[in-house]
Design a protein around this nucleic acid. Structure first.
Lengths: 229, 229
DNA sequence: CAGTGGTCTAGACCACTGA
DNA sequence: CAGTGGTCTAGACCACTGT
């Protein structure tokens, strides 16, 4: 009988989407809403807090709560392991290691991960296939100063991402999406033409202030990253 | 003196990132944690709920709370109006309307937005500039069945997105990111070469079950969408 | 069926901030 | 300084679900 926070949230949301409460307008305060819905203020508070998290409303002490006029809509993307990403599409996953070498970290990598001069890094190139078709190309550098064990790890059977996740599960990361051209070697691996446009994800990862890895993931032409909001 | 939910949350998070609580392992239940931190169960509950929302832990009634073993990390991107996106970079925003025509909705659009045969649509092409440089190309279709007023609107001064946001502030949307090639007309507008790779956002928008608009946004070459998590 | 998280309550005090 | 949201509490009941 009594209203739940979900009831309150969806009722407020519908008042906003139906236009009853226009963008920029002031919403009744928590005490009034609690009275309107016949529930405790904490219940209203939770509903409003979630709407604020969703970017629908804007709350300020003393000033009250307003419907956002310039909606800051947010898109959320799940970033799963490739293996799971492919499995969820119902396709069969296959992995292959292309190359694995130890090298001094090149300048651009040192700059990006703030590594000391002369830092050594493990450079891996791998492919991920879905139902036998090239799906994703992985070009990864691992900081051997932070993770010396990586040099002895075996990346022939499973990808470095899974190895890393098992050791450094929760890290800070910067991720960026862009478009690139498939050049020579890449087009070979992805079985596409040189000059095809490819969707690319770059990710840098830190753990406890220390750079762990930098990876460039390149998807086969036509790949889309999709979500609803 | 007493622990806040933020204290609890960050302490639990650090126990996880430091490896005290390994991936897959069971975390003490809310009552035990409340005793450990000397706070109420509701406080622990809020901390844990947020960690679950962040994809760090996994909660099931009766089974308890576990550290996720395969972290489902989520990247969040703000999708602002282009005008604000450019203003935030400290650049000067300029808008220009390239073309604006009424036409029957083509088949691919009808399929995508589930429109009836013979639906009419407004087709707009616009450009957005930052400090005089081409920044984003906008190719938009507006469903005139849902929004007949759009036919009489003036899109010479400001973009259709701002017009739409003022009328349909909170809608459902599907958004997808991909890479494409700049072809002829596009490369002219973006002042780049034919064949340059360009980052593209497609977005379909519905409101109360009715298709409103479909837009393809194409950024100048080199554009990146970046976030941290 | 019993243990765990999910939610609600009534009341309290606090923190911020606009007038 | 006064109004609003932000948070905490102690207790209660409920909903799910593993055993």
């Amino acid at each position: 009988m009594t209203a739940t926070y979900k009831d309150v949230k969806s009722d407020i949301l519908s008042k906003i989407t139906q236009g009853d409460w226009a963008p920029g307008s002031l919403i009744p305060n928590e005490i009034e809403l609690a009275a309107m819905y016949g529930c405790a203020r904490a219940t209203v508070n939770r509903a409003m807090r979630e709407l604020a998290d969703d970017g629908i409303i804007e709350r300020r002490r003393k000033a009250g709560t307003r419907v956002r006029s310039a909606p800051i809509r947010q898109a959320r993307f799940d970033i799963p392991l490739v293996r799971n990403e492919i499995a969820e599409k119902g396709a069969e996953y296959r992995y292959s290691l292309v190359s694995c070498t130890v090298a001094d970290a090149p300048d651009w990598l040192r700059a990006r991960l703030k590594l000391d001069e002369g830092s050594r890094a493990l450079h891996l190139i791998c492919m991920h296939y879905a139902d036998g078709e090239p799906y994703q190309h992985e070009n990864r550098w691992i900081n051997l100063t932070a993770l010396p064990q990586a040099e002895d790890a075996d990346f022939n059977r499973s990808g470095p991402n899974e190895w890393l996740v098992a050791r450094i599960p929760y890290s800070d990361a910067e991720i960026s999406f862009s478009a690139a051209l498939a050049e020579d070697a890449l087009s070979d691996h992805l079985a596409c033409k040189v000059g095809d446009p490819v969707f690319t994800i770059d990710r840098s990862t830190w753990w406890q202030g220390q750079a762990i890895t930098f990876v460039t993931l390149t998807y086969r032409p036509g790949h889309r990253l999709t979500t609803r909001y």
